[in-house]
Amino acid sequence: MSEDIYIVGIDMINFGRFPHKTPGQLGAQAALAALDEAEVGIRDIQAVFSGSNYTTMIGQKVLQEIGQTGVQIINLVNACSTGASAIRMGHVSMKAGEFDTVLCVGVEQMTGLGMLGAAAAGPIPTEGLLGSASMPAVFGESGMEYAAKTGATQTDFALVSVKNHHNATMNPKAFLRKETPLEMVLEAEEIAYPLTKLMCSINVDGAAAAVLMTESKVKERGLMDRAIRIRGSAMASAPWGEHDPILHDVNTPTQIAARKAYEMAGVGPDDIDLVELHDCFASVELQHYENLGLCGEGEGVRMIRDGETELGARIPVNVSGGLLSKGHPIAATGIANMYELVLHLRGQAGERQVKDAKFGMAHVVGLGTSAAVHILEKP
């Protein structure tokens, strides 16, 4: 029978703008912090699973900074789910019995990149013919489709930004640590209706890393006091739909991955104490309440209006500030979401601590498309 897998060291750098550092240096900073917390050195690492969307061979570049030991390095590109994919690959390889200690790293340097998903130069593009390919437009469109079904308003979406920006004021590693009252969010520059600028995630540089160990190795090293069990790990892509290839399906991959993760973990939505989900744009957070089973279909609007996802309420969501405030360095986000969960499960989240947290859920979606859901447990 395969062993349970634990996170024993995890960290992220303060997300921000670092034009004078290389992606390898950013990743090395996060990796060293994770290694230190796990009380291991680079020679204890048997494999590296790493990812970046804008830097090739990122794992090798990180190890050039902290120690090249000849181990296997797998580099991943999976859009916004890249970091979570690295954790997933590490988890699977350890479940197979090949390794007992691995390092997972996600790195992105996005300073100066501009808007994600902009149309590329070349022959006649699909942009404008089939609909916008830019991410604000994709999620604005998705938000309007959701609004038509549920009665959600622009104000409902703006409430997500108000909540998440407030949470970030308690997170020293978040990029934007500023209260944004509802009026400020609604009056901000319109990017793609119903999304204003303060309803969009922030392009930043960032890195996050985690050390995974098998249960026997954790016990051998005496690290159970800090170890967090990975109870569920699942990924999915979008099945073919009539909207393809014009409209991305931002919902179905999450629904599939969530069902798999719950089944693997042997728990349900009512067992989850906090969630870090992919709020790349405010409109989609309400959809993911439903996609992750936190409420019934069409009830996401009620959840945000009733404050059910605020800190101290029934199911706190994005207590870190989420991508809207923490920032969204694409490949680092999946591991950074797990870092937030680990803090709460260990009781180390300070003034934003979710009381008595035992189960946490991390979620990311990469378009086009890949969704990852992980359920972590305080053992």
Results as ranks from 00 to 15, higher is better:
V71H: 11
I87T: 06
M213L: 03
V62L: 07
V92C: 04
M224S: 00
M224C: 02
R352E: 08
T369S: 15
V275H: 04
P269R: 10
S201E: 04
V342M: 09
N337P: 00
A79E: 02
Q353H: 01
I191F: 10
G298E: 05
M224H: 03
F139K: 15
F175Y: 11
I66Q: 08
I45M: 12
E351V: 02
I315E: 00
Y193W: 06
E290G: 10
I330T: 14
D279E: 02
D225E: 14
G27E: 05
E190M: 12
K358C: 10
E39Y: 08
G90A: 12
F359R: 10
A227N: 02
L186Q: 01
L247H: 06
I124Q: 14
A84H: 00
I315W: 08
L324Y: 03
D271T: 07
Y339T: 07
S201Y: 00
G67N: 01
I272S: 06
S370H: 11
T82F: 02
I66M: 09
V364M: 07
I45Y: 09
G334H: 13
I330K: 04
G9Q: 14
I228R: 13
Q68I: 09
D205H: 04
S134Y: 15
L223R: 05
S216Y: 06
A371D: 02
G97P: 11
G321H: 04
A148I: 13
T254R: 15
A227M: 05
E308F: 01
V48Y: 06
A208H: 07
L198V: 08
R302G: 04
G122D: 06
M89E: 09
N291L: 01
P245R: 07
E190H: 09
